[in-house]
Protein backbone atom coordinates (compact mmCIF):
# COMPACT_ATOMS: atom_id res chain seq x y z
CA UNK A 1 0.00 0.00 0.00
CA UNK A 2 1.32 3.42 -0.73
CA UNK A 3 1.83 5.69 2.27
CA UNK A 4 3.05 8.82 0.49
CA UNK A 5 2.09 9.57 -3.05
CA UNK A 6 2.76 12.71 -5.03
CA UNK A 7 1.30 13.43 -8.41
CA UNK A 8 2.54 16.30 -10.60
CA UNK A 9 3.59 18.16 -7.47
CA UNK A 10 4.76 21.71 -8.10
CA UNK A 11 5.59 24.25 -5.43
CA UNK A 12 6.52 27.87 -5.97
CA UNK A 13 7.97 30.32 -3.47
CA UNK A 14 6.80 33.78 -4.32
CA UNK A 15 9.30 36.48 -3.50
CA UNK A 16 7.88 39.91 -2.82
CA UNK A 17 9.57 43.29 -2.64
CA UNK A 18 8.96 45.78 0.17
CA UNK A 19 5.65 46.99 -1.27
CA UNK A 20 4.34 43.45 -1.54
CA UNK A 21 4.54 43.26 -5.32
CA UNK A 22 5.61 39.97 -6.78
CA UNK A 23 9.33 40.22 -7.35
CA UNK A 24 9.97 36.80 -8.73
CA UNK A 25 8.89 33.21 -8.46
CA UNK A 26 11.20 30.38 -7.48
CA UNK A 27 10.02 26.95 -8.40
CA UNK A 28 11.27 24.78 -5.56
CA UNK A 29 9.56 21.61 -6.74
CA UNK A 30 8.88 21.12 -10.40
CA UNK A 31 6.35 18.54 -11.45
CA UNK A 32 7.39 15.66 -9.20
CA UNK A 33 5.53 12.35 -9.06
CA UNK A 34 6.54 9.59 -6.74
CA UNK A 35 5.08 6.73 -4.77
CA UNK A 36 6.38 5.46 -1.44
CA UNK A 37 5.17 2.11 -0.15
CA UNK A 38 4.43 1.36 3.48
CA UNK A 39 7.35 -0.09 5.45
CA UNK A 40 10.05 1.13 3.09
CA UNK A 41 13.25 2.95 3.97
CA UNK A 42 13.49 5.77 1.47
CA UNK A 43 16.33 8.21 1.03
CA UNK A 44 16.01 11.51 -0.76
CA UNK A 45 19.32 12.97 -1.79
CA UNK A 46 20.10 16.32 -3.14
CA UNK A 47 22.33 19.32 -3.13
CA UNK A 48 21.39 22.50 -1.24
CA UNK A 49 18.42 24.11 -2.93
CA UNK A 50 17.43 20.95 -4.76
CA UNK A 51 13.93 21.09 -3.23
CA UNK A 52 14.30 18.09 -0.96
CA UNK A 53 13.38 19.88 2.27
CA UNK A 54 10.51 21.63 0.59
CA UNK A 55 9.23 18.25 -0.48
CA UNK A 56 9.57 16.94 3.08
CA UNK A 57 7.39 19.76 4.38
CA UNK A 58 4.63 18.71 2.00
CA UNK A 59 4.42 15.28 3.60
CA UNK A 60 3.64 16.86 6.97
CA UNK A 61 1.11 19.31 5.46
CA UNK A 62 3.26 22.25 6.57
CA UNK A 63 3.38 23.39 2.95
CA UNK A 64 0.62 22.89 0.43
CA UNK A 65 1.21 22.20 -3.26
CA UNK A 66 0.90 25.09 -5.70
CA UNK A 67 -0.16 22.53 -8.28
CA UNK A 68 -0.67 18.79 -8.18
CA UNK A 69 -1.57 16.66 -5.17
CA UNK A 70 0.15 14.89 -2.30
CA UNK A 71 -1.62 12.04 -0.53
CA UNK A 72 -0.49 10.71 2.84
CA UNK A 73 -2.07 7.37 3.64
CA UNK A 74 -4.78 8.23 1.13
CA UNK A 75 -5.51 11.67 2.59
CA UNK A 76 -5.12 14.75 0.42
CA UNK A 77 -2.77 17.23 2.16
CA UNK A 78 -4.50 20.23 0.60
CA UNK A 79 -7.71 19.46 2.44
CA UNK A 80 -7.69 21.37 5.74
CA UNK A 81 -9.89 18.77 7.38
CA UNK A 82 -7.08 16.22 7.07
CA UNK A 83 -4.25 18.31 8.48
CA UNK A 84 -4.22 16.92 12.03
CA UNK A 85 -4.69 13.33 10.94
CA UNK A 86 -1.82 13.70 8.49
CA UNK A 87 0.48 15.22 11.10
CA UNK A 88 -0.39 12.36 13.39
CA UNK A 89 0.43 9.71 10.79
CA UNK A 90 3.49 11.36 9.32
CA UNK A 91 5.86 12.63 11.98
CA UNK A 92 8.79 14.85 11.26
CA UNK A 93 12.28 15.19 12.72
CA UNK A 94 14.01 18.46 11.89
CA UNK A 95 17.60 19.50 11.46
CA UNK A 96 18.40 21.58 14.52
CA UNK A 97 18.12 19.48 17.68
CA UNK A 98 17.80 22.54 19.95
CA UNK A 99 14.93 24.11 18.06
CA UNK A 100 12.52 21.19 18.22
CA UNK A 101 12.62 20.19 21.87
CA UNK A 102 9.81 21.87 23.75
CA UNK A 103 9.95 20.27 27.18
CA UNK A 104 12.34 21.16 29.95
CA UNK A 105 12.72 17.51 30.90
CA UNK A 106 13.30 14.71 28.36
CA UNK A 107 10.17 12.75 29.29
CA UNK A 108 7.98 15.86 29.13
CA UNK A 109 9.18 16.60 25.65
CA UNK A 110 8.39 13.09 24.46
CA UNK A 111 4.94 13.45 26.02
CA UNK A 112 4.23 16.69 24.15
CA UNK A 113 2.90 15.06 20.97
CA UNK A 114 0.53 12.62 22.72
CA UNK A 115 -0.67 15.48 24.97
CA UNK A 116 -1.61 17.47 21.89
CA UNK A 117 -3.47 14.49 20.49
CA UNK A 118 -5.53 14.14 23.64
CA UNK A 119 -4.19 10.75 24.69
CA UNK A 120 -5.23 9.82 28.27
CA UNK A 121 -2.59 10.37 30.98
CA UNK A 122 -1.72 6.73 31.75
CA UNK A 123 -1.33 5.93 28.08
CA UNK A 124 0.96 8.94 27.60
CA UNK A 125 3.31 7.52 30.24
CA UNK A 126 3.24 4.14 28.57
CA UNK A 127 4.00 5.62 25.16
CA UNK A 128 6.79 7.80 26.54
CA UNK A 129 8.42 4.79 28.16
CA UNK A 130 8.16 2.67 25.00
CA UNK A 131 9.46 5.41 22.72
CA UNK A 132 12.40 6.32 24.93
CA UNK A 133 13.35 2.66 25.20
CA UNK A 134 13.10 2.24 21.42
CA UNK A 135 15.73 4.95 20.86
CA UNK A 136 17.81 3.94 23.86
CA UNK A 137 17.25 7.13 25.84
CA UNK A 138 15.15 5.76 28.71
CA UNK A 139 17.83 6.28 31.36
CA UNK A 140 17.97 9.98 30.49
CA UNK A 141 14.24 10.55 30.96
CA UNK A 142 14.59 12.87 33.98
CA UNK A 143 17.43 14.92 32.48
CA UNK A 144 17.27 18.42 31.05
CA UNK A 145 17.65 18.38 27.24
CA UNK A 146 20.31 21.10 27.58
CA UNK A 147 22.71 18.59 29.08
CA UNK A 148 22.50 16.04 26.26
CA UNK A 149 24.78 15.75 23.25
CA UNK A 150 23.49 16.57 19.76
CA UNK A 151 22.95 12.92 18.85
CA UNK A 152 21.10 12.30 22.10
CA UNK A 153 18.90 15.33 21.54
CA UNK A 154 18.04 14.07 18.07
CA UNK A 155 17.13 10.68 19.52
CA UNK A 156 14.84 12.44 22.02
CA UNK A 157 13.20 14.23 19.09
CA UNK A 158 12.73 10.87 17.35
CA UNK A 159 11.18 9.46 20.52
CA UNK A 160 8.88 12.48 20.62
CA UNK A 161 7.62 11.68 17.13
CA UNK A 162 7.47 7.96 17.83
CA UNK A 163 5.22 8.52 20.86
CA UNK A 164 2.56 9.79 18.48
CA UNK A 165 2.51 6.31 16.87
CA UNK A 166 3.02 7.52 13.31
CA UNK A 167 3.02 5.25 10.27
CA UNK A 168 5.74 7.23 8.63
CA UNK A 169 8.57 9.46 9.87
CA UNK A 170 10.24 12.08 7.74
CA UNK A 171 13.80 12.93 8.75
CA UNK A 172 14.70 16.32 7.34
CA UNK A 173 18.52 16.35 7.39
CA UNK A 174 18.60 15.08 10.96
CA UNK A 175 22.38 14.70 11.03
CA UNK A 176 23.49 17.93 9.37
CA UNK A 177 24.44 19.55 12.66
CA UNK A 178 25.94 16.50 14.38
CA UNK A 179 29.42 15.06 14.79
CA UNK A 180 30.20 11.68 13.18
CA UNK A 181 29.28 9.76 16.33
CA UNK A 182 25.97 11.54 16.72
CA UNK A 183 25.29 10.92 13.04
CA UNK A 184 25.75 7.19 13.49
CA UNK A 185 23.50 7.14 16.57
CA UNK A 186 20.68 8.85 14.72
CA UNK A 187 20.91 6.73 11.58
CA UNK A 188 21.03 3.57 13.69
CA UNK A 189 17.87 4.69 15.52
CA UNK A 190 16.13 5.44 12.22
CA UNK A 191 17.03 2.03 10.80
CA UNK A 192 15.87 0.28 13.96
CA UNK A 193 12.48 1.96 13.69
CA UNK A 194 12.17 0.76 10.14
CA UNK A 195 13.35 -2.81 10.84
CA UNK A 196 11.73 -3.46 14.20
CA UNK A 197 8.62 -1.30 14.24
CA UNK A 198 7.99 -1.41 10.50
CA UNK A 199 7.62 2.35 10.28
CA UNK A 200 8.15 3.92 6.87
CA UNK A 201 11.24 6.11 7.03
CA UNK A 202 11.90 8.94 4.61
CA UNK A 203 15.42 10.18 5.14
CA UNK A 204 16.42 13.45 3.57
CA UNK A 205 20.15 13.99 3.53
CA UNK A 206 23.20 14.91 1.58
CA UNK A 207 25.48 12.39 3.27
CA UNK A 208 26.00 9.46 0.93
CA UNK A 209 27.06 7.03 3.66
CA UNK A 210 23.63 7.29 5.25
CA UNK A 211 21.68 6.00 2.29
CA UNK A 212 23.40 2.69 1.54
CA UNK A 213 20.81 0.78 3.58
CA UNK A 214 17.82 2.42 1.93
CA UNK A 215 15.33 0.37 -0.09
CA UNK A 216 15.07 3.12 -2.64
CA UNK A 217 16.86 6.37 -3.34
CA UNK A 218 15.56 9.47 -5.06
CA UNK A 219 18.08 12.06 -6.17
CA UNK A 220 16.64 15.53 -6.56
CA UNK A 221 18.09 18.41 -8.51
CA UNK A 222 16.58 21.82 -9.24
CA UNK A 223 13.19 20.65 -8.01
CA UNK A 224 13.06 17.59 -10.23
CA UNK A 225 13.77 13.95 -9.57
CA UNK A 226 17.05 13.40 -11.39
CA UNK A 227 17.65 9.75 -10.55
CA UNK A 228 15.85 6.98 -8.73
CA UNK A 229 16.56 3.36 -7.88
CA UNK A 230 18.25 1.19 -5.28
CA UNK A 231 21.42 2.57 -3.71
CA UNK A 232 23.42 0.15 -5.87
CA UNK A 233 21.80 1.38 -9.06
CA UNK A 234 22.27 5.01 -8.14
CA UNK A 235 25.87 4.62 -7.02
CA UNK A 236 26.85 2.78 -10.16
CA UNK A 237 26.31 6.03 -12.06
CA UNK A 238 29.24 7.89 -10.59
CA UNK A 239 29.57 10.38 -13.44
CA UNK A 240 25.93 11.37 -13.29
CA UNK A 241 26.16 11.93 -9.53
CA UNK A 242 29.25 14.05 -10.00
CA UNK A 243 27.43 16.15 -12.55
CA UNK A 244 24.82 16.78 -9.83
CA UNK A 245 27.63 17.86 -7.48
CA UNK A 246 27.10 14.89 -5.20
CA UNK A 247 29.93 12.77 -3.86
CA UNK A 248 29.79 9.00 -3.80
CA UNK A 249 31.19 7.09 -0.81
CA UNK A 250 34.96 6.64 -1.02
CA UNK A 251 34.73 2.85 -1.45
CA UNK A 252 32.35 3.23 -4.36
CA UNK A 253 34.58 5.80 -5.96
CA UNK A 254 37.64 3.59 -5.54
CA UNK A 255 35.85 0.62 -7.09
CA UNK A 256 34.66 2.83 -9.93
CA UNK A 257 38.15 4.11 -10.68
CA UNK A 258 39.59 0.59 -10.48
CA UNK A 259 36.97 -0.65 -12.89
CA UNK A 260 37.69 2.16 -15.31
CA UNK A 261 41.31 1.06 -15.35
CA UNK A 262 40.41 -2.49 -16.23
CA UNK A 263 39.91 -4.31 -12.91
CA UNK A 264 36.99 -6.70 -13.18
CA UNK A 265 34.46 -5.49 -10.55
CA UNK A 266 30.66 -5.40 -10.34
CA UNK A 267 28.83 -2.05 -10.49
CA UNK A 268 27.86 -0.01 -7.44
CA UNK A 269 29.97 -1.39 -4.63
CA UNK A 270 28.75 0.12 -1.36
CA UNK A 271 30.85 -1.20 1.50
CA UNK A 272 34.48 -1.97 2.28
CA UNK A 273 33.63 -5.65 2.84
CA UNK A 274 32.01 -5.94 -0.56
CA UNK A 275 35.04 -4.47 -2.28
CA UNK A 276 37.44 -6.75 -0.42
CA UNK A 277 35.33 -9.75 -1.41
CA UNK A 278 35.00 -8.66 -5.05
CA UNK A 279 38.74 -8.19 -5.30
CA UNK A 280 39.16 -11.71 -3.95
CA UNK A 281 41.55 -10.59 -1.19
Amino acid sequence: MSIVKAKDLTFEYIRRDEEGNVDGITTAIDNVSLDIKEGQFIAILGHNGSGKSTFAKHINAILHPTEGTVWVDGMDTSDDANVWNIRHEAGMVFQNPDNQIIGQVVEEDVGFGPENMGVPTEEIWQRVEESLKAVGMYEYRKKSPNRLSGGQKQRVSIAGVLAMHPKCIVFDEPTAMLDPNGRKEVIRAARALNDVEGITVILITHYMEEIIHADKVFVMDKGKIAMEGTPREVFSKVDELKALRLDVPQVTLLAYELKKRGVNLPDGILTKEELVKALGL
Binding site: H88, N99, E108, E115, M117, T121
Partner: peptide
Protein backbone atom coordinates in the same frame (compact mmCIF):
# COMPACT_ATOMS: atom_id res chain seq x y z
CA UNK B 1 10.16 25.76 17.06
CA UNK B 2 6.74 26.84 15.86
CA UNK B 3 7.10 24.48 12.88
CA UNK B 4 8.22 21.63 15.12
CA UNK B 5 5.30 22.22 17.47
CA UNK B 6 2.79 22.25 14.64
CA UNK B 7 4.34 19.13 13.16
CA UNK B 8 3.64 17.49 16.51
CA UNK B 9 -0.05 18.39 16.31
CA UNK B 10 0.08 21.39 18.65
CA UNK B 11 -3.06 23.47 18.23
CA UNK B 12 -3.44 25.40 21.45
CA UNK B 13 -4.88 24.33 24.76
CA UNK B 14 -8.04 22.71 23.51
CA UNK B 15 -8.38 18.92 23.25
CA UNK B 16 -5.14 18.67 25.12
CA UNK B 17 -4.50 16.13 27.84
CA UNK B 18 -1.79 16.38 30.44
CA UNK B 19 1.08 14.05 31.02
Amino acid sequence: LALAMEARCYRGGEHRTKM
